[in-house]
Design a protein around this nucleic acid. Structure first.
Length: 431
RNA sequence: GGAGGGAUGGCAGAGCGGUUGAAUGCACUGGUCUUGAAAACCAGCAAGGGCUAAUACCCUUCCAGGGUUCGAAUCCCUGUCCCUCCA
């Protein structure tokens, strides 16, 4: 959600900035609603004021033993007018909030202009010389995985497409990756390990921006009947949702900032609108594992924190010795809530391409405003919105893909990365 | 499964139909005192919104949603969450 001052005072700027990310905003319609809102709100408040003062004087008159009949008559006439005004005001306000809740964030000035992912800007690649060549034709993770216990057919039987069953060494390797990531982020990078619910309410999804606009991307659960529907819960599409909402509706002590959370959770995405895309393999699943980093920071430090958080995620790739590149998303590729995003893309030799494995974003106060997340700024002595950030550290399923493909040998065996061997009971190779 | 109790400002905790947006304590901010700090004392201190150039002023908010009333933190109903007791 954008600042209402900005919407009222500088709408042209908003239109121009949202245009940068291909979002066209009808300022005329919005201004008209705003004008009506202003008139109705003033009128309603005036009516409330006169009702309040009159009711108060009834109390006083009674205490003095004076007659109150005249006053009672006046107030009852006010009541009806007030009710009408309130209803009208509510209608306008809900129209306005529908609009504001559906407006994406404004991109940071440093975000490159562009309309598709082709215009994302590469920041660096690691190692600098790029991924090294294989001296044989590398297989992709599906072919390799079939030999060691990745079973899409079994998953299709028990659930459907875009699910997977893994058994044996590869299942363990995924667990090893998860453990390694959690240990690294808690021990080396000082994040607080957190276990949180996988089912969340709609307020939480509203807070981080998945609702109201992207309900189709979510799996929704509810009990039977109307009452059950009213209390629907959603499967989390990312741990960003429960982690960031930990601090919804709160005022954080300056001394506790920045807050740093890490959690491993499964993530659930309906992948509506991605038909035919990445149908082969583990890349795009309805259910996948992810280790997520979330930070809550002072506004003045959030872009420093974005660099740090991205580095924390990169650290995992470097320790796993997986070639990757870091790109700044262009305005057109930016997520709804984000002001600036770095994507980390890992090299997949089986696909001969870089694929996203982490997305690290600064949301500025966009989410904080939706969820009433504040701190007391000692300089102004006022409560102000904090900044929220998150990034995958990393997407475990895709990391597994990257390990399988990058560590494959000519005989089809898979070497275990050094840092994972202790998590695999000393195993050095899957064969 | 049954029976109760509770949800109030950053925190703790009074209030239980009318000058209560809310006592008090802690925390916090400013001041006095002090070489400095602590202590003590004095003062200030909820949030959101409207209208403003800015004050002033006004509105809303005591878990959420309905209701009763001229008037609700206070009474009634529904829901959510917490706690206690009995089985």
């Amino acid at each position: 959600m954008l600042e209402s001052k900005l919407l009222r005072g500088n709408i042209d700027f908003v239109v121009e900035q949202l245009n940068r990310r291909n979002f066209s905003f009808n300022a005329g319609e919005f201004n008209e609603l705003e004008d009506q809102r202003k008139i109705l709100q003033v009128k309603t408040q005036e009516l409330q004021n006169s009702r309040n003062t009159r009711s108060k004087s009834i109390g006083q008159a009674k205490a003095n033993g004076e007659s109150i009949e005249q006053l009672l008559k006046e107030v009852s006439e006010l009541g009806e007018k007030l009710d009408n005004a309130k209803i009208q005001l509510q209608e306008i306000q809900s129209k306005i909030s529908d609009i504001t809740l559906s407006m994406p964030n404004i991109p940071h000035p440093s975000v490159p202009q562009g309309s598709t992912e082709d215009e994302n800007e590469e920041v660096l690649s690691w190692p600098t010389k790029g991924p090294s060549e294989f001296d044989f034709e590398p297989k992709d993770h599906v072919d390799l995985g079939e030999m060691y216990g990745i079973d899409f057919a079994a998953a299709a039987k028990i659930s459907g497409s875009r699910f997977v069953v893994m058994t044996g060494k590869l299942a363990k390797l995924q667990r090893a990756l998860t453990q390694f990531m959690l240990d690294h982020h808690t021990e080396k990078n000082n994040y607080q390990e957190t276990y949180a619910p996988y089912l969340v309410n709609s307020d939480s999804l509203m807070g981080t921006g998945q609702l109201p606009k992207f309900e189709a991307d979510l799996f929704k659960t509810h009990l039977h009947g109307e009452e059950g529907e009213a209390r629907a819960l959603y499967l989390i599409p990312t741990a960003e949702v429960p982690l960031t909402n930990l601090v919804r509706d709160s005022i954080i002590d300056e001394s506790d900032l920045p807050l740093k959370y890490v959690a491993h959770t499964p993530c659930f995405r309906s992948e509506a609108g991605s038909y035919g895309k990445d149908t082969r393999g583990l890349i795009r699943q309805h259910q996948f594992e992810k280790v997520e980093l979330v930070q809550i920071s002072k506004p003045s430090e959030s872009y420093k924190v974005l660099e740090e958080l991205t580095n924390d995620a990169e650290g995992i790739l470097q320790l796993l010795e997986l070639p990757y590149r870091k790109v700044t998303l262009c305005t057109g590729d930016l997520g709804f809530s984000s002001a600036k995003t770095y994507d980390l893309e890992v090299w997949l030799p089986g696909q001969n391409a870089y694929r996203e494995i982490s997305s690290c974003s600064c949301f500025e106060s966009f989410q904080a405003r939706r969820m009433q997340l504040r701190w007391k700024n000692p300089e102004t002595n006022k409560s102000e919105f904090l900044h929220t950030l998150n990034g995958s550290g990393l997407a475990v399923g895709r990391t597994l893909v990257a390990v399988i493909e990058n560590y494959q040998n000519v005989d089809g065996s898979i070497t275990i990365p050094k840092v994972l061997q202790s998590y695999m009971g000393g195993l050095t190779k899957i064969k």
